[in-house]
Design a binder for these strands. Structure first.
Lengths: 164, 164
DNA sequence: TCTGAAACTGCCAGGAG
DNA sequence: CTCCTGGCAGTTTCAGA
């Protein structure tokens, strides 16, 4: 079930609307895409079943929950053997402060997006959990001064691409 | 309206559940947090009103929508005067391939998260829209080989911190 | 607690391959 | 002719006051 799903124009509009407002009612959605409710709901269910829609999530304000800083960390490892890469990924998978972990090409092996409650807790996390992890050669971190754009999801052809 | 909202344990549980499943019905949510439906709904509305909940979004599969590559771009500008920083932010705000734009401290001025349909379209985007933008001194890009962790949102004390 | 609305399930109709 | 997709009607459940 990993073939490229054939999405028609109505599917794309459904996806764009649900990406912009994940709690829109089915009748509203149906009206916006020019269908009645039942066939619209069937399409949504099919898109969920096919994992084109992977879930629905509330977008929470990090600051109000006490996560006032966002940090990017560029990590290089001593060994890039697959088992060592996987070991590092498994390590950060268990750290709640690590929100994203991407393996990159080039000199940097991984880029991590981190959140922290304040600078002291970030520093203790950095030295206690990250730079001290096995196989880590270097960690360069940069604090986020401000975030001017942070869209959720991806552009959808034929709908507003954003949310966020 | 930017004072730290006082969130009690039930609020945190509500947020955790809605972050994990943004389309959960209010009665299900109420049952999970140990309330009846009406007071639970009032809390949710209050959290939305206070912008602790900023919205709800479907999480779409980028690959199924044709966005098969994710790229990080580290951008340095020639001038870091505030007006020049803002001009760059305004420029990338209009580019749909740019999903996130974070201003950082240190040598790198901005980190961008990009999506592209394929390598040729990425290369044309890079040379046509990014490196050629006014005031850009250097752009270093790294393709994402794989993403081992990509959590939506932030950790919520007293609830599962994740989603998707 | 209560009312209107929405979610969801049949079944049927029409159009394209 | 058959499959696919949309529409209609009825029941159950939920939203919201």
């Amino acid at each position: 079930m990993n073939r490229p799903h054939q999405l028609d124009q109505i599917d794309l509009e459904i996806l764009a609307h649900l990406q912009a407002d994940g709690r829109m009612t089915n009748v509203d959605l149906a009206q916006k895409v020019g269908l009645t409710a039942p066939p619209c709901l069937r399409r949504v269910r099919a898109l969920e079943e096919a994992q084109v829609i992977r879930g629905y999530h509330a977008d929470l304000s990090p600051g109000d929950l006490g996560w006032s800083i966002t940090i990017f960390a560029m990590v290089s490892l001593k060994s890039q053997a697959e088992e060592d890469l996987k070991a590092f990924e498994a390590h950060v998978a268990g750290l709640p402060e690590v929100r994203e972990c991407h393996m990159l090409n080039g000199e940097i092996d991984f880029i991590l997006k981190l959140v922290a409650r304040d600078l002291p807790s970030f520093q203790s996390f950095l030295t206690g959990k990250l730079t001290s992890a096995p196989n880590v050669a270097s960690v360069k971190t940069s604090l986020t001064i401000r975030t001017s754009k942070s869209l959720i999801g991806v552009p959808v052809q034929g709908g507003q691409s954003h949310a966020g």
